[in-house]
Design a protein around this nucleic acid. Sequence first.
DNA 1: CGGCATCTGGACCGATCAGTCTAGTCACGT
DNA 2: ACGTGACTAGACTGATCGGTCCAGATGCCG
Lengths: 187, 187
Amino acid sequence: MTERPLPTKDRLIRAAADLFRRSGYHGVGLSELLSAADAPKGSLYHHFPNGKSDLAVAAATWASDEMLRMIAASFEPAKDFEAGTRTLCHKAAKMFDKSGQWDGCPISATLFEGPGNTDFRQHAHHLYEGWITEVTHHAAQLGEPDPRETADTLFILLQGGWQLARARQSSDELRKLPDRLFATKTN
Amino acid sequence: MTERPLPTKDRLIRAAADLFRRSGYHGVGLSELLSAADAPKGSLYHHFPNGKSDLAVAAATWASDEMLRMIAASFEPAKDFEAGTRTLCHKAAKMFDKSGQWDGCPISATLFEGPGNTDFRQHAHHLYEGWITEVTHHAAQLGEPDPRETADTLFILLQGGWQLARARQSSDELRKLPDRLFATKTN
DNA sequence: CGGCATCTGGACCGATCAGTCTAGTCACGT
DNA sequence: ACGTGACTAGACTGATCGGTCCAGATGCCG
């Protein structure tokens, strides 16, 4: 992929997304962040005038966009909704393994665990609804009877499944998700 | 909301459970913690020699025990597993509303977002398995065909549903959980 | 009463926190 | 070659962090 001469701003965003997901907003210090991104403090406050909080929003948004891309890449080539769901859960499991099996959801770790700030939480809500809207769209496209409710259910399963996978240190919990969703629903 | 008859140690544990759930382990300072518990620093280090981390483990364990009690109270008087599940989700919804609708799961906020410490995470795993074991027990007791898998699913739904409820600021997401679980499962 | 252990109160510590500030470097248009 | 704005570099600051320490209460035995 394109990873060669990544500009400082992007290095900051990616390092932030990575570290916040691992330790939560308050669990990451600026010094750790900057050394991970290999950037000096001046650059941070040049690109993100409000410092850590601005960077956190950017990092969560970037992570959310990646998730949207993953959703689209799973459902667009799918024959039906079940196939797309299986692909998505499989991709999520791979991401889980690649992350070291301890990280949480990038959005909740960054925004929900962040400052008491209401803007943070509403932004998290906005990003989550973006995921659900995207899934709803594909569910409708693929002829699912109740796309809105189905998308909600898939969101819940992914969030809960990720948590269980994290506790058990096993991405299998994510791979088994579609079975839970479709086991009795084959009509 | 005065807990005056409560001994200092318990006041610390409850304040910690409350605050960690709201802001995560790193998001709560000792000063905030101590003023919430109305206790001086000396008491903390008397009751919890290792300080914040000891207290966090105690708080998470206490919160977990409360959850175990809630599970037992939901399933013991239940005619069947579905009834128990509905009671449990209803109780969870009430707890969600009472918590101010922004707090997360006390265990993951306290232990997963805590220090990189492996002990923390394994303890979280241990507590979670305690919940699942308890639900498995009741599911078996109430004649559910596959108690282990059913308990896993309920755990996933509760974790994911709580997250969605938090984003949407609506405990209805928790109340609707049993419908998602039993809608197509009317065997 | 004395003697001892448990618990409390808070002053104090070095480390680290997020954030500020300014001098210096660099790329690029002219 | 020069000027200008975008960007980097890191020393510095005041606040707050978690943690230590010990003198004083307090309770509970004799």
